[in-house]
Amino acid sequence: NLAEVVERVLTFLPAKALLRVACVCRLWRECVRRVLRTHR
């Protein structure tokens, strides 16, 4: 699944970079939201 791969990669990025990549597309924005939720 593409979303799972994107989420896996996003887990390695710092928070500032996550906010930046959330603007790329809807899929990435949803993935960033899930990554941020799991880090809390």
Rank of each mutant, 00 (worst) to 15 (best):
11 T>S: 08
39 H>P: 08
5 V>Q: 05
8 R>I: 01
15 A>T: 10
20 R>P: 10
30 E>I: 08
4 E>P: 06
2 L>I: 11
31 C>P: 01
11 T>L: 08
14 P>H: 15
23 C>P: 02
28 W>C: 08
7 E>Y: 06
27 L>C: 12
24 V>G: 04
11 T>G: 14
4 E>K: 14
20 R>E: 02
35 V>Q: 01
5 V>R: 05
27 L>M: 14
3 A>R: 15
14 P>D: 11
25 C>D: 04
25 C>H: 10
28 W>H: 01
30 E>L: 09
16 K>D: 01
15 A>Q: 15
39 H>D: 08
13 L>V: 10
32 V>H: 00
32 V>I: 07
26 R>D: 03
40 R>C: 13
9 V>W: 10
27 L>K: 14
12 F>K: 04
26 R>V: 00
20 R>S: 12
39 H>N: 08
23 C>L: 05
32 V>P: 00
4 E>F: 11
3 A>P: 02
29 R>I: 04
28 W>S: 03
11 T>N: 09
14 P>M: 06
13 L>C: 06
17 A>K: 14
1 N>F: 03
23 C>F: 10
27 L>Q: 12
2 L>N: 00
7 E>H: 10
27 L>R: 15
34 R>W: 09
5 V>N: 00
8 R>W: 06
19 L>I: 02
10 L>C: 08
31 C>M: 15
2 L>V: 00
16 K>H: 03
37 R>Y: 05
25 C>K: 14
37 R>D: 07
7 E>P: 02
5 V>W: 02
5 V>H: 02
38 T>S: 10
12 F>L: 10
6 V>C: 12
15 A>G: 09
21 V>P: 03
8 R>V: 02
10 L>Y: 04
17 A>Q: 07
3 A>L: 09
24 V>T: 03
15 A>H: 11
2 L>S: 01
34 R>C: 04
29 R>C: 03
8 R>G: 02
2 L>Y: 01
23 C>T: 11
12 F>Q: 15
9 V>F: 07
34 R>A: 04
24 V>Q: 03
11 T>C: 10
39 H>Y: 13
34 R>H: 03
38 T>K: 13
40 R>Y: 02
28 W>T: 10
19 L>S: 11
24 V>I: 15
12 F>I: 04
26 R>K: 11
20 R>L: 14
17 A>Y: 13
26 R>T: 01
31 C>Q: 07
26 R>N: 03
19 L>C: 07
31 C>I: 13
24 V>P: 01
15 A>S: 10
17 A>T: 09
8 R>L: 01
37 R>Q: 06
11 T>Q: 11
14 P>C: 08
23 C>G: 13
8 R>F: 02
34 R>V: 05
15 A>R: 14
16 K>W: 13
33 R>V: 03
39 H>F: 15
14 P>N: 15
17 A>E: 06
26 R>L: 00
15 A>E: 07
38 T>F: 14
30 E>D: 14
10 L>Q: 03
18 L>T: 10
19 L>A: 15
12 F>H: 14
8 R>N: 02
6 V>P: 00
12 F>N: 03
8 R>K: 12
19 L>Y: 07
25 C>V: 10
2 L>G: 00
33 R>I: 04
28 W>E: 00
11 T>R: 15
19 L>R: 15
39 H>W: 15
7 E>R: 12
35 V>R: 05
8 R>C: 02
17 A>W: 14
33 R>H: 05
24 V>C: 07
28 W>I: 15
17 A>M: 14
37 R>G: 12
29 R>M: 05
10 L>V: 07
19 L>M: 14
23 C>N: 11
38 T>H: 07
21 V>S: 06
34 R>P: 02
12 F>A: 12
30 E>Y: 11
40 R>N: 06
9 V>Y: 03
21 V>Q: 03
31 C>S: 09
31 C>R: 09
37 R>V: 05
3 A>F: 14
4 E>Y: 13
23 C>K: 15
30 E>S: 11
14 P>A: 08
6 V>E: 01
4 E>T: 12
33 R>A: 08
15 A>P: 07
5 V>C: 04
37 R>S: 09
33 R>C: 04
37 R>H: 05
20 R>W: 09
31 C>H: 06
33 R>K: 11
32 V>A: 06
18 L>Q: 12
38 T>V: 13
28 W>Q: 00
19 L>D: 11
40 R>S: 09
9 V>S: 01
34 R>Q: 02
35 V>W: 09
11 T>V: 14
12 F>T: 08
16 K>L: 02
23 C>M: 14
30 E>A: 07
30 E>N: 14
2 L>M: 10
22 A>F: 09
30 E>R: 13
3 A>C: 13
40 R>Q: 08
2 L>W: 12
10 L>A: 08
3 A>M: 13
3 A>H: 04
6 V>W: 14
8 R>H: 03
27 L>G: 11
22 A>M: 08
4 E>C: 06
14 P>V: 05
20 R>A: 14
2 L>R: 04
21 V>Y: 08
14 P>Y: 12
28 W>L: 15
20 R>M: 12
15 A>M: 08
40 R>T: 09
17 A>L: 13
32 V>L: 08
21 V>F: 10
22 A>E: 07
24 V>D: 03
26 R>F: 00
20 R>F: 13
25 C>F: 13
17 A>R: 12
33 R>S: 06
9 V>L: 12
18 L>H: 02
7 E>N: 07
35 V>S: 02
22 A>L: 02
9 V>C: 05
4 E>D: 07
24 V>Y: 02
29 R>W: 07
9 V>T: 02
35 V>C: 08
38 T>Q: 11
2 L>T: 06
40 R>V: 09
12 F>Y: 04
17 A>P: 03
25 C>P: 06
6 V>M: 13
11 T>F: 07
27 L>E: 09
26 R>P: 01
32 V>R: 04
25 C>N: 10
11 T>M: 13
7 E>C: 11
19 L>F: 05
21 V>L: 12
20 R>V: 12
28 W>D: 00
16 K>Q: 12
9 V>M: 13
15 A>F: 06
11 T>P: 01
13 L>M: 07
39 H>Q: 13
31 C>N: 04
7 E>Q: 11
10 L>D: 00
38 T>I: 09
8 R>T: 03
5 V>A: 07
4 E>I: 02
28 W>F: 13
30 E>G: 08
23 C>R: 14
16 K>A: 04
22 A>T: 04
4 E>W: 10
35 V>H: 04
34 R>T: 03
36 L>Q: 08
18 L>S: 09
9 V>R: 00
8 R>E: 01
18 L>V: 08
27 L>P: 02
5 V>Y: 01
14 P>I: 06
17 A>I: 14
10 L>R: 08
1 N>S: 08
21 V>T: 06
33 R>W: 04
6 V>K: 04
38 T>Y: 10
27 L>W: 15
28 W>G: 08
11 T>A: 15
33 R>P: 01
29 R>A: 03
36 L>G: 05
10 L>I: 12
7 E>G: 09
4 E>L: 09
19 L>N: 09
37 R>N: 07
8 R>Q: 03
18 L>N: 02
9 V>P: 00
9 V>I: 06
35 V>A: 08
5 V>P: 01
35 V>N: 01
23 C>I: 09
20 R>K: 13
30 E>F: 13
28 W>P: 01
9 V>A: 08
22 A>P: 00
27 L>S: 11
27 L>Y: 10
22 A>V: 03
25 C>L: 12
5 V>D: 00
25 C>M: 14
16 K>N: 04
6 V>F: 07
32 V>D: 00
20 R>G: 15
3 A>T: 13
18 L>Y: 08
14 P>Q: 15
36 L>E: 04
27 L>F: 14
16 K>C: 06
25 C>G: 13
23 C>Q: 15
22 A>R: 08
8 R>M: 07
39 H>C: 15
36 L>Y: 06
26 R>A: 00
36 L>S: 06
20 R>Q: 06
2 L>Q: 03
32 V>S: 02
34 R>Y: 04
32 V>C: 07
39 H>L: 15
26 R>E: 04
35 V>P: 01
40 R>G: 10
13 L>N: 05
13 L>W: 09
29 R>P: 01
36 L>K: 13
13 L>H: 06
32 V>Q: 03
3 A>G: 11
2 L>C: 04
31 C>V: 11
25 C>S: 10
22 A>K: 14
36 L>A: 08
19 L>G: 14
16 K>P: 04
6 V>H: 00
40 R>E: 11
26 R>Q: 03
